[in-house]
């Protein structure tokens, strides 16, 4: 800073802060400065900043409201989707149930029919078997009668047919 010329002054006056001769000057310029700053702030800067801050606040508030609305809409859509899904599930369940019942009914009908057919065939078969057995027994009796008659004749005796028949019948009953 300044060196030589102020050195002597400094020694004489002491603290520059207590040099009262400069006070009016400082105070005058301070007041001018403060008034200028105040006017700049109150006329230009503060209204501008306040309006910007208010506008930003508005924008933020609006955006938040819009987001809230969209969120509600999304929730509604989700609820609708869930409902549609549940309906579809119920419908599918119902269709499956119906199909099952139908199939069961068909199955029952078919198995009844099959049972009836089987029973009929069984009865028929049993009838046939009985017939064959009766035929076989009659054939055995005839053969036995003929054979017995032949054997008796071959032994040289004659027997009448009635006696042989009675004897064979008694044997077969045996």
């Amino acid at each position: 800073m300044a060196t030589e010329p102020t050195g002597a002054e400094d020694a004489g006056v002491g603290l520059p802060q207590l040099d009262f001769s400069t006070f009016p000057n400082q105070i005058f310029w301070l007041l001018v400065t403060l008034v200028v700053i105040y006017l700049i702030l109150s006329r230009v800067a503060l209204p501008r900043i306040a309006s910007v801050l208010a506008e930003r606040q508005d924008t933020i508030t609006n955006d938040i409201a819009a987001a809230e609305e969209l969120k509600l809409k999304a929730e509604e859509a989700e609820a609708a989707y869930d409902k549609a899904l549940a309906d579809a599930r119920a419908e599918a369940q119902r269709i499956i149930g119906e199909a099952k019942a139908e199939m069961q009914a068909d199955l029952d009908l078919a198995s009844q029919k099959a049972d009836a057919e089987i029973a009929a065939q069984l009865a028929e078969s049993e009838g046939k078997i009985a017939e064959i057995r009766d035929g076989a027994i009659a054939a055995i009796r005839d053969v036995s009668k003929d054979t017995a008659g032949e054997i008796v004749q071959a032994l040289g005796a004659s027997a009448d047919a009635k006696a042989i028949e009675a004897a064979v019948a008694a044997r077969i009953k045996g």
């Binding site: 050195g7 400094d10 520059p16 400069t22 009016p24």
Partner: peptide, 18 residues
């Protein structure tokens, strides 16, 4: 303390309020 000395900007010794 020299840095605190109030000096006229454009020379001269007298410091009036203005």
């Amino acid at each position: 303390m020299d840095q605190f000395i109030v000096e006229p900007l454009f020379g001269g010794d007298v410091i009036h309020w203005y």
